[in-house]
Design a protein around this nucleic acid. Structure first.
Lengths: 246, 246
DNA sequence: CGGCTCATGTAAAAGTCGTTCACATGAGCT
DNA sequence: AGCTCATGTGAACGACTTTTACATGAGCCG
């Protein structure tokens, strides 16, 4: 039973050398399989091959470990949203939808981070660093909404970018929470969460007056950083945004 | 300290008489203040004035208590949504938005239920009764979407009602989870969660081609159960759905 | 190279929970 | 009156969190 521990101890000596990181990784794995609620400080210590008291040299308590994970999560989240947005290339609407997909992809592919960030019940606003990280992630959506709002078709009132950002955030979060994870994900849906969110966003954007048809594959020429594009399409795609894809 | 317990015991004798209900109420209170994660079986027992083992005569384990609460929550939720929908009176769009507001109101006014239902991490689909209750609640939204879809303006493709229902659900859930409770609720918003959701839904409906202007106060005459109403309004309200109210 | 020091780890202990088990109580039926 | 079974008690077990006193050894200083 404990020969592993002994052996590992032999390998690394009395001092672990990188316990903090090892604990974070262990916790990540545990949260992924048992949820933030089921995750245990003692388990993480065991998994790292140290005593139950050792983690207290690196984290004030269990919550601080969770916060650290959430923090990292927000950072990775921000990175993925940033990459998806890609500064609005090749065009604002396409990039915008890519951000939505990235949101869902993150929820699906990083359940542990997502769990720690949004479902662990830890008070985000109690930790300034955590709040700042969350803010930075949201700012990606906000910046994207800003650019999108600037393209509002002339003649219609320009929607407040902040409101758009909050709307999109709530859609992505709602779909991710309800359909893209765990329990309700098993609810049999007429379409995938990705398709569901894409249609939702497209309908929403159309409600704001944006042209939302899929554009034809770009002619290969590199478009300028911020193409004018103001009203390139005409309007409603045949069948609507929910037309069966493929 | 313990005179209360003694006194209560004197009042009610060895047998509590209504322990199951008392435990549910106690748990509800505890969840409201400390969240489903922080809620403790032992605490509920203490609050009901019985030993820590007593609850096991009424619930298989802690999870079953939580499930019972979630179940009740879904039932109350369904009742509130049903009342808000009011079978589509006075007109479908108005009633539909009332359902959205009811969703938020429930999340705000019944944090304990909401927590148990959506944030406690208990496997909804593992409990058939729970799943059924959740299904019934969702069916209200679904039925409302059905009626709304049937009113789709002629000439435009008719949106699938199920999709609409899922979209509306995700919006309401997203707004409720992110802005209407606990942590992120303190994020300073440019508008209230209610206004946020209302605008979101209106824009969405407009994207589907529905007329979404506010109608003038009804002339006092009782409208027929399902008024025709198909395209009573003209289209875009001045300033858009996000126009500063009041 | 020898010794100091401090970060890092351990063991033990206290307090809390969840859960089980043998036993106690008393409400309601016969 | 007596029986019985649902309901409550107390004690006990193991797991977890957190604290405390003590151990180890890596890195630095002379």
């Amino acid at each position: 039973m404990s020969w592993r521990k002994e052996q590992r101890r032999a390998e690394r000596g009395y001092h672990h050398g990188n316990l903090k990181e090892a604990l974070l990784q262990a916790a990540l794995g545990l949260i992924a399989e048992k949820g933030a609620a089921g995750f245990t400080f003692a388990d993480a210590a065991r998994m790292a091959g140290v005593s139950a008291a050792a983690p207290y040299r690196h984290f004030r308590d269990r919550d601080e470990l969770l916060s650290s994970i959430a923090q990292r999560g927000f950072e990775q989240f921000e990175a993925r949203l940033t990459a998806a947005w890609d500064d609005g290339r090749p065009d604002t609407v396409t990039a915008f939808e890519r951000v939505g997909k990235a949101y869902l992809a993150f929820a699906r592919e990083e359940p542990a981070f997502y769990n720690a960030m949004f479902e662990s019940g830890l008070p985000v606003d109690a930790n300034p660093a955590l709040q700042a990280a969350s803010e930075r992630a949201f700012n990606i959506i906000r910046a994207a909404a800003e650019r999108l709002a600037a393209l509002a078709p002339p003649g219609t009132p320009r929607p407040p970018a902040m409101m758009m950002a909050l709307h999109i955030w709530s859609m992505a979060h709602g779909v991710a929470s309800l359909f893209s994870r765990g329990d309700a994900a098993r609810r049999k849906l007429p379409m995938s969460p990705d398709e569901l969110l894409e249609a939702e966003v497209l309908i929403y954007l159309r409600g704001l007056g944006f042209p939302t048809d899929r554009r034809p594959p770009a002619k290969s020429a590199e478009p300028p950083p911020v193409p004018p594009e103001a009203s390139s399409g005409s309007g409603v795609p045949p069948g609507g945004p929910w037309g069966k894809p493929k």
